[in-house]
């Protein structure tokens, strides 16, 4: 059988070159995009952005809401992923598909759905019970949570699917109930998946804008997150300022993702 030629010095095959090329093309393209944005703005715009009380408020609110909604998403994702991966029940396939609806739905439509829901008798009852979301900062967390939860569920479920259920079954024969088995056996093996799901959820929530614009509006220093700030700056023609905020968001997200990868350890390649 013919085998691909390896480079004598590096040991790389043409397939390795193809894989590396695809990665370089995509990552390189993104870097070029960011550099072009950077070249369009200047230090003055950055200074103005950092001095702006509105942007500082939006930054604080963005970090708080995205962290809270990512945490909530993980809390819901772990049991939901467990149910989808480990339990057999009627309608499991349908439930699996329903979970993905927020991923396929345009974000603006999700916001519209939420707004409509809070105009129905059930939605009004929720608001009358004291849980107010429409045009309120809590609505930001709700919109972010609904959008990012499917990403967390998918990530946790993929990890769970890779764990041999026989390990859990044997643990049950060793005297533990299913809840204790989950805590003592499954959860430690799920740690990386939970962390990855949380980070993906946080990153998507941090950059989210569409559903919030519909559900909570774009009120300065009330429901303004960084994505809203970009929209507001663009709407008044301050393009350089909008780009500076965008780059600030990229910097924060990049820092958070790199810190996560450094803390959890990106798996090293097994074979070159």
């Amino acid at each position: 059988m013919a085998t691909a030629k390896r480079n004598r010095r590096t040991g790389l095959t043409p397939f390795h070159a193809l894989a590396g090329g695809a990665l370089a093309l995509f990552a390189g393209g993104l870097v070029i995009l960011l550099v072009s944005v950077l070249s369009y703005t200047d230090l003055q715009a950055f200074r103005a952005v950092f001095r702006s009380a509105d942007v500082r408020f939006a930054l604080r609110l963005s970090l708080m809401t995205s962290t809270l909604s990512a945490a909530l998403a993980v809390v819901f994702a772990v049991p939901s992923a467990y149910a989808l991966s480990r339990m057999r029940f009627p309608g499991r396939m349908l439930a699996d598909a329903i979970v993905d609806i927020p991923i396929v739905l345009p974000p603006v439509v999700l916001g519209l759905c939420l707004l409509v829901f809070f105009r129905t008798p059930l939605g009004r009852a929720v608001e009358q019970a004291g849980f107010r979301f429409v045009y309120e900062p809590a609505g930001i967390v709700l919109a972010q949570f609904l959008t990012v939860c499917p990403y967390a569920i998918r990530t946790v479920k993929a990890t769970l699917d890779g764990i041999n259920p026989r390990v859990e079954q044997v643990a049950r024969t060793l005297g533990y109930g299913s809840g204790r088995v989950f805590i003592l056996v499954t959860l430690p093996m799920l740690k990386t998946g939970i962390l990855a799901g949380g980070v993906i959820a946080w990153a998507v929530a941090f950059g989210l804008f569409g559903p919030m614009m519909i559900l909570v509006g774009t009120t300065r220093q009330r429901t303004e997150v960084l994505a809203t700030s970009i929209y507001l700056e663009l709407s008044v023609g301050r393009i350089q300022s909008a780009l500076a905020i965008a780059l600030l968001m990229v910097g924060i997200a990049l820092g958070a993702l790199t810190a996560f990868k450094a803390l959890t350890g990106v798996p090293a390649p097994r074979e070159r």
Partner: peptide
Amino acid sequence: PAHRRIGYVPQDLALI
């Protein structure tokens, strides 16, 4: 299974 007092060794061993 927790209350049967069975020692079970599956084919894939399933060590933690």
